Simulated scan of single mutants.
Amino acid sequence: MEEQYKDIKRLVKEVGTEHPSVDFLKNVMSEIKIASVNKSITYQPLISKKTWLVMGILIIGLLISLPFFSEEASILDKVDFSFLNGFKSPFAGFKLHSATTYGIIFLAVLFMVQITVLKRRIDKMYSM
């Protein structure tokens, strides 16, 4: 085992160490400057403010209207579509169970919490 390393040690001593060129540091620093200037990161959100506004309005509207869809009677049954010349309500007899209503409200709340947590995490990641 020791004999293998003796040959390697002799070869390394014969070759010697390499020395960089005189302007090596200058060349490396100029390349770093060029690379850092070309890669500026501009933040652009994936979802625009208008889209967040529309999604917020839809979710709030859904959360406000869900309690009206009870098991006993639906608010959509009370809407009068008679002005459409005999058009029947497409939601006639549609009832949403209270468990479904609570589940949808719970998922919406969890979705909003998840969005705020993810936004904070992304803000921390890009602020450094």
Results as ranks from 00 to 15, higher is better:
G16T: 04
F69H: 02
F24I: 04
Y102K: 10
L63N: 13
M1E: 13
K26A: 06
E72I: 14
I64R: 05
M55S: 15
M125T: 07
I32A: 04
I34T: 11
F83S: 04
K119Q: 10
L63V: 08
I57W: 07
F81V: 15
P90T: 13
S30A: 15
S40Y: 13
L58H: 04
S48L: 07
A108Y: 04
F111A: 15
K39I: 05
V28F: 03
I60C: 02
G93C: 05
E14K: 14
K88T: 14
I57N: 08
I41N: 05
M125P: 02
T51V: 14
G61N: 01
L63C: 12
K49E: 13
I34Q: 04
P90Q: 12
L66P: 03
M128Q: 10
H19T: 15
Q114S: 13
H19G: 03
S65N: 01
L107D: 06
L53R: 12
A73T: 08
F81L: 13
T17Q: 12
S21F: 05
D7S: 09
F87A: 09
S36Q: 11
I41A: 01
M112Q: 10
M29A: 08
V28E: 01
E18L: 14
D77I: 10
A35G: 01
R10N: 06
K6M: 02
F69L: 03
M125E: 12
A108C: 12
S40N: 06
L58P: 00
F91N: 03
A108R: 06
K49P: 05
Y5A: 11
K95I: 03
S70R: 00
E72A: 15
L11G: 05
Q44R: 15
Q44P: 04
S21G: 10
G86C: 11
L110A: 13
S70V: 00
L96F: 11
A108V: 09
P45V: 01
H97S: 15
V37T: 05
E2C: 02
I8M: 07
F111C: 14
K119Y: 08
T42Q: 07
N38M: 10
M112E: 13
K50M: 09
K33F: 02
P20L: 10
H19P: 00
D23L: 09
F68E: 01
Q114F: 15
L107H: 05
K95T: 01
V79F: 12
N38D: 08
L53T: 12
M55P: 00
S36P: 02
I75Q: 01
M128C: 02
I32Y: 03
M1Y: 08
T51G: 01
G93F: 05
Y126H: 09
D123G: 09
M112K: 11
M29H: 02
F91D: 07
Y126S: 00
G16K: 07
L76T: 10
E71M: 07
T51R: 06
S98E: 05
